[in-house]
């Protein structure tokens, strides 16, 4: 177990380093000089050079990279070119909104995805299965900003049940969370159903029936636990996607989350902010994959305990 974990942690660190390298160099070669952009068209070359030197942009690029990396490790993500605030503060501040939105959306996606997936498998080929799977196709294929707008119009403007912009209290999050979570609920329900049906065919399910196990005990204890392994992969990736893919929803519902922050930063070529944001996304994804790997080990003793006797 611990060797498995240690390997994964090393891998995760490696991935984060690689991403930092790529991010730094790509962002430094894309066209558009931020200093030029910051100082406007009429700045003199001397003034520009001076500012570049102040910001360390005249150093060799590898020095800039190690400087940036070293600072980041010390918690210093630099200062936004345009808002002149520490990037880390801005990220953390926005992260609160994004995290709350993501958690609500994810809980919805998990609960509905798992329940619908299990029900569809239990009532395989019956009416309920067909109904849920039709809904899930709609859910997977509907773009989330479109779902968001429909929800705003119906539940916000027509019924006036929920506010449609801002993030002041819990009820502000309901519509955005539903809009963001829908497609993930749909995809989790589909993989849960497929995986449950696959498990139902396995020999050990017949063994369980032969022991007299039946009903929900058969479904949950014997089928669901085995079916969870592929579901965890999808659900883990989905958590990453939800945390890092809420830009459109944040824009539609005017929530000041990371997504909105990033969109603005990119438009302004605010390099430190973009780099910090990309690193945020990378770290979130890597940590989530790490958690998924740990979860595998918890669910599946073949991973937890390693290989045993064969034959």
């Amino acid at each position: 177990m611990s060797r498995y974990l240690l390997g994964r942690v090393f891998q995760a660190v490696g991935v984060i380093l690689a991403i930092s390298l790529i991010t730094f160099f790509i962002l430094n070669v894309i066209p558009g000089d931020p200093v030029q952009l910051m100082m406007g068209e009429f700045a003199t070359p001397e003034a520009i050079a001076q500012v570049r030197a102040q910001m360390g942009l005249d150093q060799p690029i590898y020095k800039q990279y190690f400087g940036w990396l070293g600072n980041m490790l010390r918690g210093d993500f630099g200062v936004s070119y345009f808002q002149h605030r520490p990037v880390l503060d801005m990220l953390l501040n926005s992260f609160g909104y994004t995290a709350r939105l993501a958690v609500f959306a994810y809980v919805l996606a998990l609960v509905f995805g798992l329940v619908f997936g299990i029900l569809a498998a239990v009532f395989h080929n019956k009416f309920l299965d067909r109904l849920l799977m039709t809904l899930s196709i709609a859910g997977v294929s509907a773009p989330n900003f479109w779902v968001a707008i429909i929800l705003q119009i119906y539940f916000g403007l027509t019924l006036k049940w929920f506010p449609i912009s801002g993030a002041k209290a819990f009820n502000y999050y309901v519509l955005p969370a539903v809009a963001l979570g829908t497609r993930y609920a749909a995809s989790i329900s589909r993989i849960t159903r497929t995986s449950m049906l696959e498990v139902t065919k396995q020999d050990y399910m017949r063994t369980a029936s032969a022991k007299g196990v039946h009903g929900w005990m058969l479904v949950m204890k014997h089928a669901f636990r085995n079916a969870l392994i592929p579901v965890v992969t999808v659900a883990g990736t989905d958590l990453g996607n939800i945390l890092t893919g809420s830009m459109l929803i944040e824009t539609v519902f005017t929530i000041d989350g990371i997504g909105k922050l990033m969109v603005d930063a990119i438009n302004q070529r605010d390099l430190p902010l973009v780099q910090g944001g990309v690193m945020y996304i990378a770290v979130i994804c890597v940590v989530i994959y790490l958690l998924v790997d740990i979860l595998y080990a918890v669910i599946d003793p073949r991973i937890r305990l390693g290989g045993g006797a064969e034959g």
Partner: peptide, 28 residues
């Protein structure tokens, strides 16, 4: 079915051809 569940495992029990796949992999 209710009566069958009581008989299976108690009145009659069965073992299968494939010991490699007939036990639940996630339970001890």
């Amino acid at each position: 079915p209710r009566e069958l569940h009581k008989i299976r495992g108690k009145g009659m029990a069965m073992i299968f051809q494939e010991p490699m796949t007939s036990l639940n992999p996630v339970l001890t």
